[in-house]
Write a protein that binds this DNA or RNA. Structure first.
Lengths: 107, 107
DNA sequence: CATATTGTTCGATGATCGTCGTACAATTGA
DNA sequence: TCAATTGTACGACGATCATCGAACAATATG
């Protein structure tokens, strides 16, 4: 049960899109792409509680978007960029590029 | 209230990704891209009821993925390809290309 | 006018989701 | 050994979701 990672062939588009459709998770993925160095979950600045963070990382992992490996008391997270690019060419890049677009702020 | 279409600037990435994360809606979008001719909702073959269809078309419309315009008793649906491409370059194409990938079928 | 045809509206239902706090587990370090 | 750090597990909560059927509305067509 612990830290299941789906094999590349099992990555499903709806699950990946769903994983990326949450603002907090999108932020995680953006940070990971800007700084690909594997980082502990705690180093991501999200305005949610610790347990909610755990939840979001699980959703991303089970959709195949990230990998997590234990190191001491930490869990290092990295993007499964290669798998994503193989399975869904151009998708991650398009999402990341789209996420860079600033949101229109009301006057 | 009737048939609201968000202006291009208001298209939000999470909403679009969420709209595309459902298999039925993904199928609608794929059909629309293969055959860009505006079609009535009824011409899409989904294994859901009429009212559920209405629901999915509303989600897609409110996310800015499709347009719907009335013609007689029908409602013609088309992809907002230009708006999507401007706002989220490459996203729709990547999603569509990824959706073409056949799902692995268990032996 | 009567009847299809096409789609919406309106609950309702069961499932999933995002969020939280508390308690717990595991490792590190003094 | 004791305390700090890092993350998980477990309910629980309200919100949203995908789905349905039945009733309704609007337009065509006979």
């Amino acid at each position: 049960m612990s830290t299941y990672h789906p094999p590349r062939e099992d990555l499903a588009l709806p699950a990946v899109l769903h994983a990326l459709s949450d603002p907090q998770r999108l932020r995680i993925v953006r940070e990971l792409s800007r700084d690909p160095e594997p980082r502990p979950c705690g180093s991501f600045l999200l305005d949610v509680s610790k347990s909610t963070k755990t939840h979001h990382f699980r959703v991303l992992r089970e959709a195949g978007v990230i990998t997590q490996r234990v190191l001491g008391t930490s869990k290092l997270t990295s993007l499964r960029r290669e798998d994503l690019d193989q399975r869904f060419p151009g998708l991650l890049d398009a999402v990341l590029a789209s996420a860079e677009t600033p949101v229109a702020v009301p006057a």
